[in-house]
């Protein structure tokens, strides 16, 4: 087959997977042996193989979230052997390949764990808290139409590039899952910094940071203790600098708040 390494031998694995019927039921880890896995498979293709086997046996397949399988939609969300998106740095679960595992491995697969992300079923969690934080202020208040010509706003390339780096957050929630306090600071700070850096976003920077942080607290995310597990596990490399920037934005906003 094109792309596959002819010397790569199929692997036999033992999977321990979190099974939970619904939000209100208790869950548990269930063990499944799975044999003949190609190292060129993606992690989710490995789960597809398991699910086909379960279906053929008449058992319920394992529910997990996924869509693009290209590392961009942020839908996949597995906690693999105690790490958000598994062992490879800078990689979402859907882009993780089985060549990073060995024949005979036992792999534990769990959902994101956080009070603000309740489990819907098996490995699927409810991340709607992230949407509500964005709704609290993650935008520039412009209506469609009647805006200036795009090139009337010149933005230094260095700033545009930095804003872009912050804007690449895929909203998967790995930062929350990786943090022992289940803090959402990295996620929130990525949007706050992106818009605070750009001239278009500066007008509302104070209310934006205040409202987004307030919503984050309402949702029950934990406090940030500056350990940096979030950035270390972020599949797209969102930097801790964003948290520092958000803290400055927040203090600045509070110091001059019109909302006191």
């Amino acid at each position: 087959m094109a792309g596959s390494n002819p010397n790569a031998k199929p692997m036999d694995l033992t999977l321990k997977i979190w099974r939970q019927k619904d939000k209100n039921s208790a869950g548990q880890l269930v063990t499944y042996p799975l044999n003949g896995i190609s190292p060129d498979m993606s992690f989710l293709e490995m789960l597809d193989v398991l699910n086909e086997e379960l279906l053929v046996k008449g058992e319920e397949p394992v529910a997990f979230d996924h869509d693009c399988r290209e590392g961009i939609c942020g839908m996949c969300s597995l906690f693999i052997n105690g790490r958000a998106h598994g062992p490879e740095r800078g990689t979402t679960t859907c882009q993780l390949h089985m060549r990073h595992f060995n024949h005979g491995d036992t792999i534990t697969i769990e959902p994101w764990r956080a009070a603000a992300f309740p489990v819907h079923k098996d490995l699927i969690v409810d991340r709607s808290a992230f949407d509500r934080i964005q709704q609290a202020g993650g935008y520039v208040s412009v209506n469609t139409g009647g805006v200036p010509d795009a090139n009337e706003i010149a933005i230094p390339k260095t700033i545009a590039d930095k804003a872009f780096d912050a804007a690449t957050c895929i909203g998967c929630g790995a930062c929350v899952a990786a943090c022992k306090n289940a803090s959402a600071m990295l996620f929130v700070s990525a949007k706050v910094s992106q818009l605070a850096m750009l001239p278009q976003g500066k007008v509302e920077r104070k209310t934006r940071v205040e409202n987004m942080v307030a919503q984050m607290d309402v949702e029950g995310f934990g406090a940030c203790s500056n350990i940096g597990a979030c950035a270390a596990e972020c599949p797209v490399g969102i930097s801790l600098d964003n948290i520092a920037m958000m803290n400055r934005e927040y203090l600045g906003a509070k110091a001059s708040s019109e909302n006191v």
């Binding site: 935008y139 520039v140 412009v142 469609t144 139409g145 805006v147 200036p148 010509d149 795009a150 706003i153 933005i155 230094p156 390339k157 545009a160 590039d161 804003a163 872009f164 804007a167 992106q194 818009l195 750009l198 278009q200 976003g201």
Partner: peptide, 12 residues
């Protein structure tokens, strides 16, 4: 124009 006004960080 619309996307730039929203803060979409196009390449520059």
């Amino acid at each position: 124009d619309q996307c730039v006004a929203q803060g979409v960080p196009f390449a520059r």
